[in-house]
Simulated scan of single mutants.
Amino acid sequence: MDLAFVESPVQLLNVLEWAHTRTSGLLHGIPAQPKGPGSAGSGGTAHALTVVVLSPTDPMSRGQLRRMAELARDEGVTVRWQEARAPGAGAPLRTVRELAPLLRGARRVVVGDPFSRYVQLLLTLVGTKDLTVVDDGTATMEYVAQVARGERLVRWHRRGRRGARELALAPVSAVARRRLSPSTAREVEVFTAMPVDPPEGIRVRANAFAWTRTRFGPPRLTRGADLVGTSLVETGVVDPGRYEEAVAALAARHGATRYFAHRRESTGKLRRLAARTGLEIVRPDLPLELIARRGPIGRTVLSFPSTVVHTLPLALAGTDVAVAACDIPPEWLRETASPRAQGFLAGVTGTARGVHRIGAPA
């Protein structure tokens, strides 16, 4: 049995893509299992995959995850919904205790976010089992780079200060980093749509979004442009005022009519954008790669530096949709932004294949 831990809709999508690739397309068409948050099943005869959803607390992520869980069950995958962040200080230890038998029986462990403290805690229990890291967006690029440099795992948008909580969890993070690094004792695989330069010992398998393209589309195209939102404001990287000005300028310049909100974007910010620009704010119920592939979608999709400048060209391969990426100038960054932020964001757009780069609005 392969055992996957996911905490976001995109991670679950990429686990399905990984399983589709490993089973040579046999994932699609396995008889569906009973639906329900705690349902279990055989996983079909072509593979045995169990996905554990370590449920987040924000409503948008939970909603998208439930929709993705339905799709996974329709493909014959066993899905276990785990309220890992239930109220109470004992929730993490209780979750680990409940999942320990599954971990012991797993042949391979698949994770979506190597920076997650929850995942790192679980990784202390995997021993010498083979590991796969699937994309959780652009964070995969930073994970591979940090492992190659032998650094501790720190998200790119954090300034790196170590508080009391970080110091307390340092031993757990150190063990997880060893588990996620090349070793003769286990295979470490990265399944990614991102451009990465792995160190010796890490196997890279390309994610071409074959399951998405097989399962959905091709989409109907609209005449206008669509704009993809980002959570760079919410993570403290980009100034809110600058971001709203940029969205308004891009919408006016390119004739955008819809704004696909990131699941972490605040309601207040979205209200201001709608009032200022007249854009229709869309709260997707699935990851954007699936929304775009199902359609309708604009002939041009505008995005700031984010995962979608790498994934949308793959998901929309064979269509006439053009993906355009807008750069983030240094003056848009907040003082709270990490010193690495500018270089990382420039790298995200600079390494994207099949996208048009457009200058930042004045």
Rank of each mutant, 00 (worst) to 15 (best):
Leu316Tyr: 10
Pro56Thr: 12
Ser303Met: 09
Arg22Tyr: 06
Pro195Cys: 10
Tyr243Cys: 03
His310Gly: 03
Thr222Lys: 07
Met60Cys: 05
Cys326Trp: 08
Gly29Trp: 09
Gln82Gly: 02
Glu280Ile: 06
Ser24Gln: 14
Gly201Trp: 09
Ala352Gly: 02
Ala86Asn: 09
Gly25Thr: 13
Ala72Val: 13
Thr212Val: 15
Ala317Gln: 13
Val190Leu: 01
Gly241Ala: 13
Gly43Met: 06
Gly63Ala: 12
Phe209Glu: 07
Gly236Lys: 12
Leu3Asn: 02
Ala341Tyr: 05
Leu290Gly: 02
Ala208Thr: 15
Leu13Glu: 15
Trp211Arg: 12
Val228Pro: 00
Thr311Pro: 00
Arg294Gly: 02
Asp136Phe: 00
Phe209Val: 01
Arg178Pro: 01
Pro92Val: 07
Ala148Tyr: 10
Pro9Thr: 14
Thr349Arg: 11
Leu169Tyr: 10
Asp58Ile: 00
Met1Cys: 03
Thr319Ser: 04
Val348Arg: 01
Gly163Ile: 09
Thr140Leu: 04
Leu99Arg: 06
Met60Gln: 15
Ala346Trp: 04
Phe191Val: 03
Arg85Thr: 00
Val309Tyr: 08
Ser183Ala: 07
Arg271Phe: 06
Pro287Ser: 09
Thr124Lys: 03
Arg107Met: 08
Ala256Gln: 07
Arg334Pro: 02
Asp130Asn: 14
Arg97Tyr: 12
Leu49Asn: 02
Arg205Asn: 06
Asp239Lys: 06
Glu7Gly: 05
Pro198Tyr: 14
Thr78Pro: 01
Leu288Asp: 06
Gly298Tyr: 11
Ala206Glu: 12
Thr184Asp: 13
Asp136Glu: 15
Pro34Thr: 11
Lys269Phe: 05
Asn207Met: 04
Thr336Gln: 14
Thr257Ser: 11
Pro330Leu: 13
Val119Phe: 01
Thr351Ile: 05
Gly76Asp: 11
Thr336Pro: 02
Leu153Asp: 00
Ser39Ile: 08
Glu166Arg: 03
Val10Leu: 15
Thr128Trp: 10
Phe344Tyr: 15
Thr78Cys: 11
Trp18Tyr: 15
Arg62Phe: 06
Trp211Cys: 00
Thr50Ala: 01
Gly63Asp: 13
Pro198Glu: 12
Arg85Asn: 07
Val172Ile: 15
Glu289Gly: 03
Gly268Gln: 10
His310Gln: 06
Thr128Arg: 13
